[in-house]
């Protein structure tokens, strides 16, 4: 009797100890990331005013706004998404609904995982050699956006695949049982029921594309241009590259303040994009009937 009691006490002690350890880990993460956010926001909020968003840089990057960089980042992400989303979602559909050969799926999956593991700078090298040089797009919005597009492709595939897999098999069986074709089932049942998950993945990859620097370093980003991009072949300024350039090029002391401000804008942009994604997902989960 007593032995069982002790054993139970020991097990409960183990459990509480385990829970506290896990909790500490989580707290450590939240605190360090909280420090990062607060530190940069506090230091950068000073230069943020309406002009900062809508004006061009002035006096050799030491004053003025960062409008061209904001616009450039949005355009680069847009090109990337237009490239990667159709391809990524359809790849996921094929993987989940159409693939018949286990071997092929396996090879493809290894390929996608490997592509996801490719360092971001390698996408830059690929973009430089292929889009800029081989295809002759030059350093441009198009080359940079496509490089980013290849980079986010695995993310789009993976998140779409996960979303498709959350649709219960019974839905599919019911649809096929009612005489719908496979495509009708995909189009009318599976995609609509997983759209929130797919959308979440897409929006998260927009955030990723907006924040990436390495792939655009040599494929289309430029430190400074007085002109706004007027075609896919223009070089563009971009927020992340702007931060890097401000920290490494030039010596004006005010550049640091602008760098803080740019970091705040970039983070706000990314945080807003991601908040939208998360909001969609939460709403969709609430609406879900199964």
């Amino acid at each position: 009797m007593e032995i069982t009691g002790n054993k139970k006490g020991k097990r409960e002690f183990q459990q509480s100890l385990g829970f506290v350890a896990l909790q500490m880990c989580l707290l450590a993460v939240i605190i360090s990331l909280g420090v990062l956010l607060v530190f940069i926001f506090v230091k950068g909020i000073g230069v943020i005013n309406p002009d900062f968003f809508i004006k061009f840089p002035e006096d050799g990057m030491s004053s003025g706004g960062i409008f061209p960089a904001i616009l450039g980042t949005l355009l680069l992400s847009l090109v990337a998404v237009f490239f990667a989303v159709p391809m990524g979602v359809l790849t996921a559909v094929w993987l989940v609904e159409y693939s018949t050969s286990y071997k092929m799926v396996r090879i493809l999956r290894i390929g996608i995982n490997s592509l996801a593991g490719v360092p971001s700078i390698v996408f830059g090298l690929f973009g430089l050699a292929f889009f800029v040089k081989f295809m002759g797009f030059g350093p441009s919005l198009l080359s940079g956006g496509l490089s980013l597009g290849v980079l986010i492709l695995p993310t789009v595939i993976r998140t779409s695949e996960e979303a498709l897999l959350t649709v219960p098999v019974s839905f599919k069986e019911a649809s096929l049982g009612l005489g719908a074709t496979r495509w009708e089932t995909v189009y009318r049942i599976i995609l609509p029921n997983s759209i929130s998950g797919i959308l979440t993945g897409i929006i998260l990859s927009v955030g990723r594309a907006a924040g990436e620097t390495a792939p655009i370093l040599m494929t289309g980003a430029t430190f400074f241009t007085m002109r706004l991009p007027n075609s896919l072949f223009s070089e563009v300024m971009a927020l992340p590259y702007h931060i890097y350039a401000l920290m490494t090029e030039g010596t004006h002391p005010n550049q640091l303040a602008i760098a803080y401000g740019t970091a705040v804008v970039l983070m706000m942009l990314v945080l807003v994009i991601n908040s939208i994604a998360i909001y969609i997902r939460i709403m969709a989960r609430r609406a879900r009937q199964w």
Partner: peptide, 14 residues
């Protein structure tokens, strides 16, 4: 997830 999405250049800056 919001924190996972902070751009690497911001981390480098930090």
């Amino acid at each position: 997830e919001l924190l996972a999405s902070i751009p690497s250049v911001v981390f480098g800056f930090f």
